[in-house]
Design a protein around this nucleic acid. Structure first.
Lengths: 238, 238
DNA sequence: AGGATTTTGTGATTAAAATCACACTGCGCC
DNA sequence: GGCGCAGTGTGATTTTAATCACAAAATCCT
């Protein structure tokens, strides 16, 4: 089954090619069946917005394919990107569980597919299957962990160079293929990278120039290669 | 029952004078009984440390009395205080649920009492009482929410003055007594306040001078009074 | 392919807070 | 009461990255 955006729809959660630690992996059959009953699948093009900061939570989105940028903004238009989510991630879980407004905006940066589960259905599903509630709690604590990492980057890192080094290293750590451990695809603009580390576009540009000059990294097209991982690690101190 | 630190021990969770939204409030009798069986109570003096950033999680601490400072530090010794916890708060829940190291250090800033529940006992307790797992999930999502607020302060706030204004307003919002809505006890040093908003002690000193000069606040001993709340609110923009 | 629009690179200038330095205050304590 | 010390106030200086400005390069689009 093909869609307007050139994606294959994944119809069955069981077949969803997501990570091992997926929130809904290896559920008892009853729970899985119930889950398939309350979910609804949709496909989103690039730049589609799943939800907006401040909206009342409608429910959760389980990302099956594509990439999502989570961001939050001040009234003055300054924006920070708090996370880039990929397939397997659950979006809107915190807001849905605490029934407070979505605290971030979720925007597709790569077209993809997500399963939506409405809040009411999800909450009664949890009450019915306590085992899943424990899984949700684990997922939430991981979310918290990530948020805490962000706090440490923003609050403890001294210089923008340190923050960029940290970001690049974190990105390489995400690589699955060990052969490509030192390579990553730069899909974000300098502006967006700046929004991830709380600095300005110009500073990011200068930092990249600097890193290249110092032979720390090499950029060819959209591929960035870490040439001196040790040096990058020496730059960070937290 | 009195303790060496001049505190009354609270022996029964049911009698614990905590907030309404406490994690373990209004539990089914069976759960409560079980909870009382697995908890152990201890009393802590000022400066006592409940757990340290990086330690393997031993379990959770339910604060019954006293105040706790949660902080995280960089290798270079720079510290940020992420939260001040008061009675009713659950400490170490994230680390315990995700079985990752405690991400913060918890230190008593006011002597108090806490109930400790070991990780294993807590996890099986949750599996047995699914209802409680949902409560835990709600608590975790609230924690996340707070962390996200912190991210917004650190990442979006433009100036230290804005951050301090935000902090003072947040503190006044915590007051229970409506008559004292505009007063708060300054128990932290300028140094610690600086650690909460990611700036330096000198800057905090200067900001307070500035706020006083502009008639925004008044300080008498340890009591700070907000004189112009509207003006403080106008300073923040996110 | 070619024009439009983003995105990036880089210099010059400015603004803002960190840092350094040191005096002062208030408080606990013997 | 006065010693000692943690905490505070404030000036002078320095550092750093934000801001402003504009050109160059890359990309998107039909």
């Amino acid at each position: 089954m093909r869609t307007p955006y050139g994606l294959n729809i994944i119809d069955d959660c069981v077949a969803c090619p997501v990570r091992e630690d997926h929130l809904f992996c290896n559920l008892q059959p009853g729970a899985l069946q119930r889950l398939n009953g309350i979910k609804s699948t949709a496909v989103y093009p690039k730049s589609a917005v799943l939800f907006i900061e401040g909206q009342q939570p409608r429910g959760i989105f389980v990302l099956c394919a594509g990439k999502v940028k989570l961001s939050t903004s001040s009234k003055e238009g300054k924006t920070i990107i708090t996370k880039l989510s990929c397939s397997g991630d659950v979006l809107g879980l915190n807001a849905t569980m605490s029934n407070r407004p979505y605290e971030v905006t979720a925007e597709m940066v790569e077209a993809g597919q997500a399963n939506f589960i409405a809040r009411d259905a999800f909450v009664s599903f949890l009450r019915e299957f306590g085992e899943v509630a424990v899984r949700v709690a684990e997922q939430l604590s991981r979310n918290y962990y990530t948020a805490h990492e962000e706090i440490k980057i923003l609050g403890l890192a001294t210089s923008p160079s340190e923050k960029l080094a940290k970001l690049l290293l974190a990105w390489t750590d995400e690589a699955k293929d060990p052969a490509k451990k030192l390579q990553l695809r730069l899909t974000l603009t300098h502006e967006e990278i700046a929004e991830m580390i709380g600095t300005t576009r110009e500073t990011v540009s200068r930092l990249f120039s600097d890193f290249k000059k110092k032979q720390l990294v090499q950029v060819k097209g959209v591929t960035l290669t870490i040439r001196d991982k040790a040096a990058l690690q020496r730059m960070l101190q937290s």
